[in-house]
Amino acid sequence: MNQQNKRIHPHKFTLWVGISSIVMMFAGLTSAYIVKRSQANWITFDLPVIFWYSTAVIILSSITIIISANNFRDRERPRYRQWLLITLILGILFVVMQTIGFIQLWQSGITLTRNVAFSFLYIIVGLHAVHVIAGVITLIVIYLKTFSVKVKSYSAVPVEMISTYWHFVDFLWIYLLIFLLMIR
């Protein structure tokens, strides 16, 4: 069993392999974007300002989830729960801000079907938001579980996994933001 303990937990490992799979999906989309951009009929666009604020929000949420996980390890359950809730709210705020950004884009004439550049923008940012929403749902489940009286889990694995995933969607957004700013 000692040999087993030194190894990474299999569920965590599964998550990392899953992350690599998500990376491939976005790699496919962004390389398709690059290929399309070099062809005719590409209209450049400006990202809405609110995407900068949402970036700040998601970076902040990455910090709060670290604090939350640290509190979990220190067995500070109320504080852990509190920081988890803050992360959760920031996550929802991020999704709301992305939606507002899209509404602004749409109203300024950058609609889904007007140009293939805009279509890519909607698909890439939208799929990222879907992954954030998946994270938010997981956070809600974990948050509700902290209120369970019957089962008290001291395993750090679920918290560490959602933390890893959350950092991943954070990094993914920063990559996508830089990508969309540099290459358009």
Binding site: V17, G18, S20, S21, I22, M24, M25, A27, G28, L29, A32, K36, N41, L112, T113, V116, S119, F120, I123, L127
Partner: peptide, 27 residues
Amino acid sequence: VLSFPVLLSGAILLLFDRNLGTSFFLS
């Protein structure tokens, strides 16, 4: 694990082309 997600991207784009009027593959 590394190649199926790329097909998923392609399938999503195709679904958009078919049903939402985008032009990823059409011209």
